[in-house]
C-alpha cells in the first residue's frame, strides 16, 4: 500500500518550508453511516517531524481536525539534502512514517 503521507520540504534562505498531506478519515465519533450507526471516533493524535535526530515540529490533534489533513510550517537551520522523517499515530494505535529529503 502506498504511504499515507505526502510531503514536500524546500530549503530557502536558511529556512525549510514543509507542506504535508496525510490521508486519514479523521472520524469525529459523532457522524453516522448510511445505516444510522455511529462511526467510531478514529483520528490522528500526534504528528512529528524529525530531522537529524531533532524534532522540529509536533502536533497534538483531536477529532476536530479535517479529513486528509494538510499541514504547512517552516523551521530555521535546515539545509538542502537533510533527511526529514514524518510520523503519525492515531487513537486506534495505527501509525505511518515516511522519510524524505529536503529539496
Amino acid at each position: 500500500m502506498a504511504s499515507t503521507i505526502r510531503v514536500r520540504a524546500i530549503a530557502a534562505d536558511g529556512n525549510v518550508e514543509v507542506q504535508s498531506l496525510i490521508r486519514h478519515p479523521m472520524d469525529s465519533g459523532f457522524m453516522k453511516n448510511d445505516k444510522g450507526q455511529i462511526i467510531p471516533a478514529h483520528f490522528i493524535q500526534t504528528v512529528t517531524f524529525e530531522t537529524k535526530g531533532k524534532i522540529v515540529f509536533t502536533a497534538f490533534w483531536g477529532p476536530a481536525i479535517s479529513k486528509d489533513p494538510y499541514l504547512k510550517f517552516s523551521y530555521q537551520g535546515g539545509a538542502k539534502g537533510d533527511p526529514l522523517t514524518i510520523s503519525w499515530t492515531d487513537n486506534e494505535g495505527m501509525s505511518d512514517t515516511l522519510t524524505t529529503k529536503v529539496a
Binding site: 502506498a2 514536500r8 507542506q19 498531506l21 490521508r23 486528509d68 494538510y70
Partner: peptide, 10 residues
C-alpha cells in the same frame, strides 16, 4: 501548491 485533489487523482 499541494492540491487537495491529490488523493482523488491517485
Amino acid at each position: 501548491q499541494f492540491p487537495p485533489t491529490t488523493f482523488a487523482l491517485e
